[in-house]
Nucleic acid binder design. Sequence first.
DNA 1: GTCTATACTTAGATAGAC
DNA 2: GTCTATCTAAGTATAGAC
Lengths: 207, 207
Amino acid sequence: MAPDHRGLTPRKQPRQARAEATRQRILTAAAHVFAEYGYAAGTTNRIAARARVSIGSLYQYYPNKDAILAELLIRHLDAGAAAVGERLDGQLPDSLEETIRLFVRTSIDNHLDDPQLLRVMAEQGPRTPELLDKVARHHRARVASVQALFERHPQVRVADTHVAARLAVATIELLAHQLLAAPDPVDVTRFENELVAMLTGYLTTER
Amino acid sequence: MAPDHRGLTPRKQPRQARAEATRQRILTAAAHVFAEYGYAAGTTNRIAARARVSIGSLYQYYPNKDAILAELLIRHLDAGAAAVGERLDGQLPDSLEETIRLFVRTSIDNHLDDPQLLRVMAEQGPRTPELLDKVARHHRARVASVQALFERHPQVRVADTHVAARLAVATIELLAHQLLAAPDPVDVTRFENELVAMLTGYLTTER
DNA sequence: GTCTATACTTAGATAGAC
DNA sequence: GTCTATCTAAGTATAGAC
């Protein structure tokens, strides 16, 4: 016997839930394919195949190939921002060195997840104005929060905290990106220690 | 009257010279086109048009599109290596700081030439094994020479000169690349000063 | 040696059946 | 809603005239 519903319930309700799952499958497949083949050779056909969805269905969920990579990038940025925010919410360590280490480690973690995909997104992704703008805003936000931290911290001795923040953020992100995605990756712990030492020394040295 | 030649001289001799000039024109055009459009959209048709050569002629000089970018990259690497070698030939400054400055400045100069083209070459160029190998060899050579310099220099205090050299080389090249090619480029002089200070501090601090 | 015209390939995107 | 089959566009590379 049918349960006593209001009468208009669709026989199978997975209207939204199933569609969402399909979207997610496509996205996950795209992440793998882009990471493996790069953007140009990461064709929509390959993505559809990997997601076990026909090419026609894929285009029902995303208007074009760029939109897929764009969504991956946006999710990555949001996740990164969330991770940073989270770690800044709690009490920061007293020593500058440990604070720097927190930043460095967060960045490394963020990159260790899928270095190849990150590389593709950073280097070959579509450079639409909106995307560039979104990336730039995220970047500026990070620089601003690091700068604010430098200004509050009594150990920091640099003349221009803005330039220092830009240098620090760029150094951390670029090195994490490069050295971890390299074919000849460095030892992560050692890399972390050296990088922390370099930045801490720079920030605390009277000149 | 015709000069007293051996009789088989071609009427116009520019056999090699003219061909070399055409090759160079194609290369120069390619540099502009790649820098402006990127690799994928930098089509051979555009390159040929810009060089004022037909597409057919272009393919008489280069077997395919990859070969054009490859030659540009090789020339860039060789020029960079030559520039570094040149500056290391003369007497190095006594102070470590000035030596570091020499490296930093060389790298910056190398990048200021055509940041956009460099970006395309680094990020979108064909990743054939030979090219990757060539790039890797150049890179290792630079790391090795920097490491040797660190070992000779009395002011350097780091525990592991190899790791330090890798970190230093990567930092210099990546930051030059990123900060100069950015839409929001930093002031070059200030950037140079801060970077030199950071590296010098790192290398000379006892830990 | 240089050109024009074009063949070939590939991938993005769509139409229409089921 | 999902599929298969197909169209269109673009770009590399070649053939063959001059």
